[in-house]
Amino acid sequence: MSAARERILGRLRDRLGEGSQESPHPSAAASARAGDVGVFCRRLEAAGATVERIPEDAVPQAVAQYLTQRNLAARVRVSPALAKLGWDAEPLLETAFGIADLDDAAAVVPANLGVAETGSLVHVSAGDNPTTNHFLPDHAIAVVAEDAVCADLEAAFSAASVSAMPRTVCLITGPSRTGDIEQRIELGAHGPRSLHVLVTRK
């Protein structure tokens, strides 16, 4: 295989010349510019998500209410990173922590950042933040702090990659959708059919 590598790179060198390393425009130059939370929420809604702005300690209550409004069972999978949100305050809400499976209808997941430019949530995978939970359940309820909303894609990328890159950085912009049948947009292709975002303030 390394022979193929040498031939491909050799052809490129022949055609492009060795030249000096061009210094790339470094992504890290973008500072973590704060984004407009109102714009962020509007863009998220435009992408098909629903948004609620609540105090940080009201997450369990908001989750319970959302499930009731949607006529869903009072049972959620919670990503371990959100285990300490005071779930005991909602005794009627059944919570399970860890990785989601096919039986989980709804999951509560953290978003590490928001992007005002695009209305995206940024998921950064970690031991307490499995990627599966963002994609497998039918209904995703995402929690993002309003001071984690940054201005644009560059700011989000530089914040997400500030230490070493994790396995997965995912920008989530609305629920799952498809237009593969007669170009008509339908929600809930393989990922969540609905995305509810809780934007929290301290």
Binding site: A47, T118, S120, T168, V169, T173, G174
Partner: peptide
């Protein structure tokens, strides 16, 4: 769309 639903960066 202004942005597709999922843009995912995988590293290792």
């Amino acid at each position: 769309q202004d942005m597709s639903a999922y843009t995912t960066i995988s590293t290792g």
